[in-house]
Design a binder for these strands. Structure first.
Lengths: 214, 214
DNA sequence: ACATTTTTTTTTGTTGACAAAACCCCCTCA
DNA sequence: TGAGGGGGTTTTGTCAACAAAAAAAAATGT
């Protein structure tokens, strides 16, 4: 396990608070307030904030301050398309480097997703969905892809909460993941990449519909 | 123009120094040394370093220090594949949102590339190549894509210098860019994305050859 | 009453000092 | 001779104070 300074720990606390909706979008978060709240000095808070700025959850304006980044429709489009592209790439390499251990991990994650879908609890489904995709990214053996993807997952969680429903057709959702996992487990990069792209396109259309409602 | 604090300015100086090869790969860069060199306090240097860490040019280890990130073959593969994927995505959206002004910009950049190729100066060719691709990314109207791409461009420059030659067949290089710009100017997203992918695949095979020589 | 200028307050920017961890050299002892 | 342990040095981690910029509030003049 990697050692971490206070700054990193504070960043994690802050990140979780933001993800749990403790702040209003666009709200200014002053360094002194955070300093008092977390019991560390402003300098340390500053380190944490800079990290969250790089992760895209906080917007920083010189001599103005740090603000919870509000996401508009264009932001959502950006996050969505980028994530889609990275997932397709990850699926390709996951298939290319697949091992029997990797297949087991995928099967287990798929099983968890199925259980979550049966429970019909949105939070559980979203978590299992993300977990499965994260395993695919891990299997791609692409560290930079992993870093980018995790950040996009956080940003996605940020706006997914605001949507009324994640997906309507749960049967379809499961089936899409089944064929993707199959393709990766078969070690077919082209097929995996294509399916990943398609999978997300369906999601994207759903998203477009939701956004059009605004 | 956005205002920037001392920290950001120092980061830019440092970034340029690293790109110009002022440091050895893997070399530790102590905060105090930089502080003395740039005439700002350690705290400010710390801000700069953190920024470069996020850009991938510096590796940070808690309680150890900051080191010029050395790039091995796997790193190059990661950077290359990611850039490839992002360029394909950018080409798609550039074609989708193309305007007459955008076509002009592409034509001008293509012209610069042609001039550079005629000069046969590697540095000029690389610069013109990057400039053209950067315009494509700009035309995609995708801010996050732009940020990621710029970082990958820097990392690419970092290892491109170590290669003996960038490309052997200059005629082919130009032709590939011609067809890509044509596809984007025609407003054909699918075709543009496909060509961008292929273009980079050719580059990638060249890269593989170079790396195998180590 | 309104716009403008001045003053005050709030918030970020920068710095130097001190604490904690890691590193390095050297000494000891089996 | 070499493995292990101190102790001093170097380097990063954290902090609180002060400076600079921006924002808010108050005063001023028309």
């Amino acid at each position: 396990m990697l050692k971490r300074g206070l700054g990193n720990q504070a960043a994690e606390v802050l990140r979780n608070e933001i993800l749990s909706g403790a702040f209003q979008p666009g709200e200014q978060i002053t360094e002194e307030a955070l300093s008092a709240q977390l019991g560390v000095s402003r300098g340390t808070i500053r380190t944490s904030l800079q990290q969250l700025v790089h992760e895209g959850m906080v917007r920083y304006e010189p001599y103005k301050g740090n603000f919870i980044r509000p996401l508009d429709a264009h932001d959502v489009w950006e996050i969505y398309t980028l994530r889609n592209s990275l997932e397709a790439l990850a699926s390709r390499f996951a298939a290319q480097f697949i091992t029997s251990s990797g297949k087991d991990q995928l099967a287990a994650a798929l099983n968890n997703l199925q259980t979550a879908i049966k429970s019909k609890q949105q939070r559980a489904i979203v978590d299992a969905d993300f977990a499965l995709h994260l395993i695919i990214v891990e299997l791609s053996q692409h560290k930079r892809l992993m870093v980018q993807y995790k950040q996009l997952e956080n940003l996605t969680r940020l706006y997914i909460n605001t949507l009324v429903g994640y997906r309507t057709n749960l049967e379809e959702l499961l089936e899409e993941h089944v064929v993707l996992v199959e393709a990766i487990s078969q070690g077919d990069p082209d097929k995996s990449e294509l399916i990943a792209k398609e999978h997300n396109t369906v999601d994207g259309q759903f998203l477009q519909t939701q956004l059009a409602a605004d």
